[in-house]
Design a protein around this nucleic acid. Sequence first.
DNA 1: TTGTTCATGAGAACCATTATCCACAGCAGA
DNA 2: TCTGCTGTGGATAATGGTTCTCATGAACAA
Lengths: 140, 140
Amino acid sequence: MTEPVSAELPGRRTTRQRSALVALLDELDGFRSAQDLHALLRERGDSVGLATVYRALQALVDDGQLDVLRGSDGEAAYRRCSPVHHHHLVCRSCGRTVEVTDPPVERWASKMAAEHGFSEVQHQVEVFGTCAECTAAARS
Amino acid sequence: MTEPVSAELPGRRTTRQRSALVALLDELDGFRSAQDLHALLRERGDSVGLATVYRALQALVDDGQLDVLRGSDGEAAYRRCSPVHHHHLVCRSCGRTVEVTDPPVERWASKMAAEHGFSEVQHQVEVFGTCAECTAAARS
DNA sequence: TTGTTCATGAGAACCATTATCCACAGCAGA
DNA sequence: TCTGCTGTGGATAATGGTTCTCATGAACAA
């Protein structure tokens, strides 16, 4: 009751492992699986346990600092994202991601849900394609 | 070369197990997991192996007769769907599903992708909420 | 009916994710 | 500085959905 409730991350400590993970995510610009991130950390010498990677990712998601996406194989992929509501345009081939926003889509989702009596609505809009570079590379 | 290539399901046999699965899917109107479907088949006496359920579901998806959805836990859910392109409005609580279409969203996705140089675009739009009945039930 | 070939089913294998256990680190108060 | 509390890390086991293996059985064409 006496703790500063307004603090962003109450009772969350800053450790070498979490810093390394956040730094890595800042460098990457596409969605990466937890397994990938764990392997990348090991490669660069920042040895971190797999369970720790999962815990840290989950914590960051809870804090709204990461976005999660489920691929067609069910594996979760993570990415550092802006805190405002947005959707993604993801390259199937290289994983590069563009954040996009579109108020009309938001309105459409709310309207459609209301028309059918649905409440507490969330929507999920992701666009997958092949980016210009990968298309060019595939042609060579 | 001599087979009827135009046949809907070339080289796919009709078996008791597949018929039972399709019949079950026709009766249900929400997304169900493979595990659920397997349990339901057992309950009604149509004993079918779990592996068979997965194989049959995969085959139906390949033939475009089923839609797949990945829940937040990564579990796949299946549903009998109309063959034309559409999206879903899914009740988080009871799983009931409404199929919706919206050409503007389709156009928006294509336009957005083109602006960023993406090609071979697919999009995924799902809206989750709580349907009127479940909202009412929760209030009681 | 017969032969070929695909489908089935039980269980093992697989793999991402989560839980468990215990040692350790950071911080607060004595 | 010492001590105790609590969150964290790491290794590993457990979990659970999905896929694979392979011997057996069923569908279909001739």
